[in-house]
Write a protein that binds this DNA or RNA. Structure first.
Lengths: 149, 149
DNA sequence: ATCGCTGCAAAAATTTTGCAGGTAA
DNA sequence: TTACCTGCAAAATTTTTGCAGCGAT
């Protein structure tokens, strides 16, 4: 059960920014680099911690993440602990997938398949809502934690 | 598509508290009352706003909500806006259900069925995780907002 | 009488905003 | 040059913690 997506090329990401006349700056490249090299969704503070001190202000990461989210380049997740997490979107389908989070050690497993695509249609049909999307995350106790009570 | 659960009797909730030697106080009764009368998950501030001023401190609501969550009497939701929402759990099965949130006007629709119960088994079998649960919410544009661009 | 609960105050943690200067295009 | 972007500082939100006193059992 490896991670669900291949690394996106940095050039490609730059191009997406350029297309919306957004500038390619040092901080942004570094933020994108951290995102590219993260196997799981990362918090703002984690992004901050993963770059050499002084490379980029914390506030800039907040602002960039908003921008990237608005551009559909990044997806926001919430694992129920009140901290936002972000993951680079890849592929044309958006690389839609879900996570399985261990409630004891916070280990994260990426689930490759999406179970819920048909559900959206059913929900839409019944409710009259359009452009229905969903957020689905799983929680449980991982094998390692099961062994250590 | 009405709401998925019947109102729980206050006495029943009190009993649950008593069983764990938690005290039945004025603020707690008022908090439970707000929860009982809420058709959708409510934020801490909403609970606060829905009781006569001075009836209960905001901090007490935070603390009570933690307690109730820990006791399995209340469930926490996150609709992606960075604010926690809470709903009373009812029934033996926990009244498991999902929500459909309009991304324009924040209207909430309660979905009566749970689509995802079997998914938990599949996820558990594949990953080796145990006690797998899930959180699933849907987002879309409601009929009213569709009519007003 | 005991243990738990509450309010108030203060702190912590996360996220947003204002502004003056700097930089990519 | 002209938008856009950044860092710093400050503020706004949301949530947590300490403590002394009150209250349910």
């Amino acid at each position: 059960m490896g991670h669900a997506h291949a690394k996106r090329r940095l050039v490609e990401l730059m191009e997406q920014l350029r297309a919306k006349s957004r500038k390619i700056t040092g901080p942004r490249q570094k933020i994108l680099d951290v995102l590219r090299n993260s196997r799981h969704p990362v918090t703002i503070k984690e992004v901050f911690a993963r770059m050499p001190k002084g490379d980029c202000d914390l506030v800039t990461i907040y602002r960039s993440m908003h921008l990237l989210e608005g551009m559909g380049m990044v997806k926001r997740f919430d694992f129920g602990d009140g901290v936002a997490r972000f993951e680079l979107i890849d592929g044309l389908d958006g690389g839609h997938h879900h996570h399985l989070i261990c409630t004891r050690c916070d280990r994260i497993v990426e689930l490759e398949d999406c179970f819920a695509q048909e559900m959206e249609k059913a929900v839409s049909a019944r409710s009259g809502f359009q452009s229905v999307t969903h957020k689905l995350e799983f929680f449980g106790v991982c094998p390692i934690c099961q062994a250590t009570p």
